[in-house]
Design a protein around this nucleic acid. Structure first.
Lengths: 217, 217, 217, 217
DNA sequence: TATGAATGAGTTTTCATTCAT
DNA sequence: GATGAATGAAAACTCATTCAT
């Protein structure tokens, strides 16, 4: 109003640019925990340090939050690893255990792992998003990584796999399930898993399976 | 039946005994598809062939529908198989493929498979139910079946497993994931799986892994 | 259906004529306690030993229960006393204490006393009934009794009252209030009154007031 | 104010501070008139100039409206008078008529008089509130005022009362009944009372009763 | 820009009343 | 006659969204 206000610092200068990310962060946690429908805009706002109305300055509606989560947050975190792995040399058998555990540490076990549970839960209500998530997260990343390693191992004579395509799907499933478990049943303390041990046992089992010489009856 | 009854059909018919099951059936389908919160009582009622109010004669509130689904519907369908499998004789290697595919056909791929997705999605909102589901469905059935076969195979000298407990968890996870997949991503036609082929490939991989002679580094 | 049923006693012969009264009895208690709107037909039925639907054989709807209570139950109980009192001879001063206590014992303190509270509570929603109750119960009975005694006492030179009409209203009010109190605040144990003592003290105070020789300033 | 604002009136205006009182005002009127159960939130809202949902910003549920009425509104209006009366000097006989009429004018006949009827009607459904009302409104105020005047009159030799405690209850009852009457039967135009005349006659009768020289048999 | 009061379109739940049995 | 399953019309409460401040 008065000229004075031009001098004193405005009330809400607080990192204007960080807001959308903060809001999505809050939304992610709550959506994953309670589900999309049960989560209230007001709760997201509070966790993000703003009030309900403010959210609408950055997102046109509630659906857009979920969309933002999938389309924007997801892809940003998704590229580093797969690139990294393709460059490696050496025995694929040795790479696989590392690759799986590395995947868990950089991505699978992180915050965005919740998106997998979220898409399982809400996918039917947002088919376009599910499609997108499936393509980008499941096929393009998980799947392609496995596919790459598997075929390399076969080419190098290390692995003997009959149905390569479906074996990829099987391994991919295991990876997804660790994300889902972490965000659902693992919340019951009785069932938290020792993930290091889990991945050790998994690599053990998987590698032995891949190295088989004679097909099973 | 008689000509008289054809004059005007009654506004409703009395179906006391069948109603609860019909209602739970409808609820199951909708809860699994849309999630608990998004599903309207009125929609469940309509699919069950009644009006909203009628549901409250059989269930005190919406939560009770979910509870009925988990506590009543689940257990009813859960006993036949595990008993059946324990009686078998012969090589465990031969049993495992049968057991997994049998599980999928009698239970894993049936309607109630949706409960797994449902508990993943809503577990945080109904911790007591999740606990119950985990104990009864995951541990007591899936887990124990695997545990039984695995230890039997080891005892008979067919399998060589280092970390038995976690290997059980790993295999159990795969089974759960087929249920989850069927009720989520598989809805996108691009990703429907050929389950026969999937289980074949899985048995292949798994058995080879279990039969390993030398532990991996 | 068959001829046999004509011999065996029918299922519901139970005093067909008593039903309406039993239902009204149940309704009275619940209406007075919980109010008209809060009381459910089903609860009335249960207390009367029937099921909800049966009530509609005797009363067309919920309102009719209240109407039956006021119009039928009330008047039946209302005539004996006032007639009784008018016949007495002797000093009115001696009669008044007896009359009040007698009123309390035969009517004021009985079950139907609840009607007074009920009409206070629901009168605005049933103006015709309130009018009826006011005329029949308050004016015609309470009021007329007091009026009769008061004027008789004045005529006999025992009482000196300036504003007879309003003095009647005042005394009448006291009587109504005992009924209301009994059905409301008296339910809190701390405030149950010793009604014998109450009426003693009241007669004391009232008679002294009526016998005054000199008007107050 | 300015010409600009006249163009189109806003859908609503912000009245944060006034709202709770406005809502309680509306609720009081409707609760007293129709009873708690019969009164719809929407009606209260409309009378308060808002929509139904807005009420829930200030009160968590319908019960809280009643509670707010009793616990907040009541006490605010209750202190002035009793303090005022205790300070007076002179003959108690002269004070009593004034006290009663003063009570009626400042409190007994005001809007909040409806609370008395309301607690009579709904007390059984809200026992804690009834208790509170009884203690604060009936005993602490009405009762104590009467008690004080009565004992003072006795001490000064003006009154001769045998059972002081119950005489207090009797007079207290009369006061309550005026409130109840005003909010129930008085609504029927035939029975509106001339309250000035009523209190005159009452003071007349009461004082004469209190001044009695010889106890009645 | 941010706030948070207010709206209004739902959704669950209740219950008087009807009616098939 | 009586039952109680079913209806359908409320009514309390919730919450995404808007908008005055």
């Amino acid at each position: 109003m008065t000229v004075d206000t031009a001098i004193s610092s405005p009330r809400w200068t607080r990192r204007k640019d960080a807001r959308p990310a903060e809001i999505l962060d809050a939304a992610l946690e709550l959506f994953v925990q309670q589900g999309f429908a049960k989560t209230r805009i007001e709760d997201i706002a509070q966790r993000a340090g703003v009030t309900g109305g403010a959210i609408y300055r950055y997102f046109p509606n509630k659906d857009a939050l979920l969309e933002g989560l999938i389309r924007d947050s997801l892809l940003a975190d998704l590229d580093a690893m797969s690139a990294k792995l393709r460059q490696r040399e050496g025995k694929v058998s040795d790479m696989i255990a590392d690759a799986l555990w590395g995947w868990w540490q950089t991505f699978g076990g992180g915050k965005l792992s919740g998106l997998c549970k979220l898409m399982v839960a809400e996918g039917d209500n947002f088919p376009a998003l599910r499609e997108f998530y499936f393509e980008q997260a499941i096929e393009e990343r998980c799947g392609r990584l496995i596919d790459f390693l598997l075929r390399k191992g076969i080419a190098q004579g290390e692995f003997y796999v009959i149905d390569v395509d479906y074996t990829v799907k099987i391994i991919r499933s295991s990876m997804l399930m660790t994300q889902i478990w972490k965000n659902s049943f693992a919340h019951s303390e009785r069932e938290a898993l020792d993930m290091r041990r889990y991945f050790n046992a998994y690599a053990e089992l998987l590698l032995a399976g891949l190295k088989q010489k004679e097909p099973q009856s």
